[in-house]
Design a protein around this nucleic acid. Structure first.
Length: 882
RNA sequence: GGGGGCUUAGCUCAGCUGGUUCAGAGCAUCUGCCUUACAAGCAGAGGGUCACUGGUUCGAACCCAGUAGCCCCCA
């Protein structure tokens, strides 16, 4: 059989994914087994796969595949998120290209376009996840805006409203002038930018006296309704009770005083624009000054501003500076750095704005659901890494009300209904709203008589107001709270997500879980870190520093990319993506592939060779016991969610123990067959390794494992997915270390002295325990090119130590030139130092008094060992120098 | 401004309740090899005042305090 020496993943991956789907391997229905559930963090429906998804979903797939092999009924629910702002922005942009303006469309027309868009592009990201090998139960694919999930959202809104947990109020919100919507605090990103501080004179009426104000936002001056200084600030005491004139608009406003003002910053005087700054807003309320909203919803100047009407806020900033300079009001401009909030979705500068919005009263909510905090703090819900508990705690204890309305069309429309007098009812349909309205407002004449119907709120709900229900709604837990799925799969097991959405999503799912299921939504939260480039910059489309995942998988194989993502990604740490890690993954695939080629190339025989008779049993015991240890270690890593460590343990086992040692021992001489039982042993080990590898690298492991198992039952494929996770075999321990060290020693001496591996060696071992070597002598001969092994004293050849045993190595036909006297002396010095440190400990009475007895015994042992080693080395040294 | 975290080999990270000379891994580096599974490889090697200062202890990378630098979150 001719197999290529280079592994080519492409066809193999496509082939197996199709087989897996055709055989319904990822399907899950409730049964008697223990459930193991993961709900996917739903990617944006119009999104494309980025490196963060790759990391996140690889981890989920590793967990779910292993759970399946552990005999659990593993269910990974996929789906997508309707992502109000992002999707609406994309649809608006698409329409713009077609020459259609959103303003010219009715709500229904716009939504028709949006749905069309969703149908066209909505599945792309899920298809990409299949390329990565994700073993989701695709029949369960959900969408946050599909009818039943939307219904759940509306029902929850109504329910919370009825419980008094939702209210509508005028608040200062973060306004996104590009998206023309309010966004939550969590969606604002603060960036440090270079700004200018403008120094502007506000004159006292009919006087040359003025107050100087420093501001970074001169354009908001049109909405100024006061200026404010610190009452302790001596410089401004003379202005108590006075007024000043706001330039340009020539409005007379009071000078007020408040401790809030920092006398050190700028001139120590703040202009107060209650409509456009949260602090000014609070001061405005406190000092009862008026509020003038000088912006339109798109960030242009409003009628109320009185000047520059319709011009953009940033253009006005420049213009107003110019105009103020001309009129002599602008004294100077100063460069400063300040923090400015940007919209996460549109990257527009956020404009604080007062508007009517719907809120969830979080203080009340938390009072009703204290478990939201307790469950995490008491490790009922585990965070990996646990240090993020602190962040969670801090946020929850300082929680703010959640603004849930968005001025968009794409999303669940808020089920609130208004009459023409501002009376509000909350109900699912217009019909129900009318009924409720008549009940609530019996004294208002029937609407019909006034020729009016109730009108529904124009806004939709925040996307997170649907995703916070995800672990329940994907199992239809709202409509049918007792259905088989929700009873079986909820609470889910693990949630894998990024720390940046801890507040957006994780915390809120915990909230909805306790509110609606009286239970936590998941047991473990694994926070992945953010994928960054080597310069620690976040990978993003706009920076162009992110490789295209599909291209990567094409070049390196999905398995290689998966390994690249998993290497070096402990929970909670950012991963610094480097292509070399993916290369390492690809190289690993190739290594495995070649081991496979080797094993498959062996002809087998029933004739037992001498080597087989003498060494197969001990080799088998050795590799089995090593594998036991590796499996235990891997399992421990999994329990602690240390996936990269688990993979690394397996990587080292396959590469070093299996390939470099085991296969080299078992390899028959060129052209000769291997004993059939030995071949069986090799395949058995190899097969288990492929099972262990499967969660990490599902494709190559599946490809290779099949042919390694002879029991392909009547052509039916025996998928790894349906096999079990290998368990330790309780194999016999073998004392192999000395023999293996001896091999390394011989290779080392060859290397040091520039002797070709083809030159054979004769060695002589001086030991009290020949049994440490004898069972391995054929193996030693094979791996270190040794032609004879004797036991006893020998003065000839190069000297070395294995443990306390003295080794003499003669290379056949090689003249020993220099004596490694210096090396010997170096080693003696080292051991002498070591001995001294141990002796210091052992003569320290306090150590003897305080340390545990077994520790003292260990130190004793170290002492005697070191002493005897030194003796041996000194003897060698003297024999050389004599 | 408030809160949290980090600082261990060139890079990325381990180091579990303090106890194998001041310590490990992978990658990278160096040396020698195309030895018929694999050069995407083989056999070896080198490399660290565990940020700094002080304290607790018989004993500190690990515990405590301070200093410096970096990062994240919130305002």
């Amino acid at each position: 059989m001719e197999i290529s020496s280079k592994y080519s993943p492409k066809d193999i991956e496509t082939k197996w994914y199709k087989e897996w789907l055709d055989n319904n391997l990822f399907k899950s229905v409730p049964d008697h087994r223990e459930p193991y559930t993961i709900v996917i963090p739903p990617p944006n429906v119009t999104g494309v796969l980025h490196m963060g998804h790759m990391l996140n979903n690889t981890i989920q797939d590793v967990l779910i595949r292993r759970a399946r092999m552990l005999g659990k009924n593993a269910c990974w629910v996929p789906g997508t998120d309707h992502a109000s702002i992002a999707t609406e922005a994309k649809v608006v942009a698409m329409l713009k290209e077609k020459g259609i303006n959103k303003k010219d469309l009715t709500r229904d027309e716009f939504l028709a376009y949006a749905w069309e868009w969703k149908e066209k592009y909505g599945g792309i990201i899920l298809e990409q996840l299949k390329k990565l090998g994700c073993s989701c139960d695709w029949d369960r694919t959900r969408f946050t805006m599909e009818p039943s999930l939307s219904e759940a959202v509306i029902d929850v809104f109504i329910d919370l409203h009825n419980k008094g947990l939702i209210y509508r109020g005028s608040r200062m919100v973060n306004w996104d002038p590009a998206g023309k919507t309010a966004v939550s605090d969590e969606e604002v990103i603060y960036k440090e930018v270079d700004s200018k501080l403008y120094y502007i004179k506000y004159f006292v009426p009919n006087s040359d006296e003025f107050i100087m104000v420093a501001t970074t936002r001169p354009e908001t001056l049109l909405g100024d309704t006061a200026v404010c200084a610190n009452p302790k600030d001596e410089r401004y005491k003379k202005f108590i009770g006075k007024t000043v004139i706001v330039p340009i608009v020539n409005r007379e406003v009071p000078v007020i005083f408040d401790e809030y003002v920092d006398a050190e910053f700028g001139t120590g005087v703040l202009k107060i624009t209650p409509a456009h700054d949260i602090n000014d807003y609070n001061l405005g309320i406190k000092h009862k000054v008026a509020s003038i909203d000088c912006f339109n919803e798109d960030g242009t100047m409003s009628e109320a501003a009185g000047f520059y009407i319709g011009q953009d806020r940033f253009a006005v900033r420049k213009q107003i500076a110019k105009d103020l300079a001309e009129s002599g009001h602008l004294v100077k401009e100063e460069a400063i750095k300040n923090k400015v909030g940007y919209s996460e979705r549109t990257d527009a500068v956020i404009e604080p704005r007062i508007s009517k919005q719907w809120f969830v009263d979080m203080k009340k909510f938390m009072a009703l659901n204290p478990e939201v905090l307790e469950s995490v703090m008491s490790d009922d819900i585990n965070f990996y890494p646990p240090k993020l508990k602190n962040t969670y705690n801090h946020w929850i204890t300082n929680i703010k009300d959640w603004c849930i309305s968005r001025q968009l069309w794409w999303g669940q429309r808020i089920p609130a209904w208004y009459d023409d007098q501002g009376n509000t009812v909350v109900a699912k349909t217009h019909e129900e709203a009318l009924q409720l309205y008549r009940k609530m407002f019996p004294n208002i004449p029937p609407l019909g008589d006034r020729g009016l119907l109730l009108s529904q709120d124009d806004d939709v709900l925040d996307t997170w107001f649907s995703s916070w229900l995800w672990p329940i709604s994907v199992f239809d837990g709202f409509k049918n709270p007792e259905n088989d799925d929700i009873s079986y799969y909820y609470p889910t097991n693990d949630l894998v997500t990024a720390p940046e959405i801890m507040f957006f999503w994780v915390a809120r799912m915990i909230m909805s879980g306790y509110e609606y299921k009286k239970q936590k939504p998941f047991k473990n939260v694994y926070y992945t870190g953010i994928v960054r480039d080597k310069l620690r910059r976040k990978m993003s489309k706009s920076l162009g520093n992110s490789p295209d995942p599909l291209v990567l998988m094409d070049e390196y194989g999905a398995d290689g990319v998966r390994m690249g993502m998993l290497l070096c990604s402990p929970a909670g740490n950012d991963i610094l993506f480097d292509i070399s890690q993916v290369e390492q993954g690809r190289n690993f695939c190739n290594k495995i592939w070649n081991a496979y080629r080797l094993v498959m190339s062996w002809e087998s025989t029933s004739d037992a060779s001498e080597f087989y008779k003498n060494y197969s049993a001990i080799t088998n015991d050795w590799i089995e016991s090593r594998l036991d240890k590796a499996i235990q270690e891997i399992n421990e890593h999994f329990e602690k969610f240390r996936l990269s460590d688990a993979l690394m343990t397996l990587y080292k086992f396959i590469w070093d123990d299996f390939c470099s040692w085991y296969l080299e021992i078992m390899k028959p001489p060129y052209g000769q067959p291997i004993h059939e039982l030995a071949l069986g042993d090799v395949k058995s080990i190899f097969e288990r390794l492929m099972r262990l590898l499967h969660p990490f690298m599902p494709f190559i492991s599946e490809e290779i494992r099949g042919p390694l198992t002879q029991n392909g039952k009547n052509g039916a494929i025996d998928f790894i997915n349906n096999t079990s996770w290998p368990a330790p075999t309780q194999s016999k321990e073998v004392e192999y270390e000395n023999a293996f060290e001896l091999i390394t020693l011989i290779r080392n001496k060859r290397n040091e002295n520039g002797i070709s591996p083809k030159v054979s060696a004769k060695i002589c071992v001086s030991t009290q325990l020949e049994t440490r070597y004898r069972p391995f002598d054929g193996i030693i001969k094979k791996l270190a090119n040794v032609e004879s092994i004797d036991f006893g004293k020998n003065d000839k050849g190069l000297k070395g130590l294995v443990g306390k045993d003295e080794i003499s190595i003669e290379f056949v036909g090689w003249e020993m030139k220099a004596i490694d006297q210096l090396d010997l002396q170096k080693e003696i010095d080292y051991l002498q130092g070591f001995l001294t440190s141990v002796e210091v400990k052992l003569t320290n009475e306090k150590f003897l008094a305080n340390a545990k007895p077994d520790l003292i015994a260990k130190e004793q042992q170290k002492k005697t060992d070191a002493e005897s080693k030194i003796k041996t080395l000194q003897k060698q040294l003297s024999s050389i120098s004599s």
